[in-house]
Design a protein around this nucleic acid. Structure first.
Length: 100
DNA sequence: CATATGACACTAT
DNA sequence: AATAGTGCCATAT
């Protein structure tokens, strides 16, 4: 199973209304400092929307990127009741803790 | 095998 | 608090 496949597997566990970060996912799959690599995987994500890649944001709460435009990402999150203010999300409120 | 790339993260200003 | 550097890792060339 490739690195990206593992990322999709973990991300699959993130529930609606919650989010996680690139770095967290990297950690979850056992690759510290692999946040950037996770971004690459998300960028390709062949399992959308089965795999909620829009629930992955930056460690500082900023939205981060999205293949079809960050604006779309924000909309989707808001539809799931995730509050986004000035391109930022309150991690304390919406961050989903991944098992390590 | 060597380099370049990108949806990041951390530290020091 | 906001910004600039620098490091990082899987993939693609």
């Amino acid at each position: 199973m490739s690195f990206s496949e593992k990322c999709y597997a973990v991300l699959r566990k993130v529930p609606r209304g919650k989010v996680t970060t690139y770095g967290e996912i990297a950690r979850a799959v056992g690759v510290l400092g692999g946040a950037r690599a996770v971004g690459n995987a998300m960028n390709k994500n062949p399992y959308a929307p089965e795999v909620p890649c829009h629930r992955v944001i930056c460690s500082d709460g900023k939205i981060g990127g999205f293949a079809t435009g960050s604006a779309k990402k924000v909309k989707m999150l808001e539809k799931e009741n995730v509050e986004v203010r000035n391109w930022k999300v309150d991690l304390e409120k919406h961050k989903f803790i991944l098992r390590r």
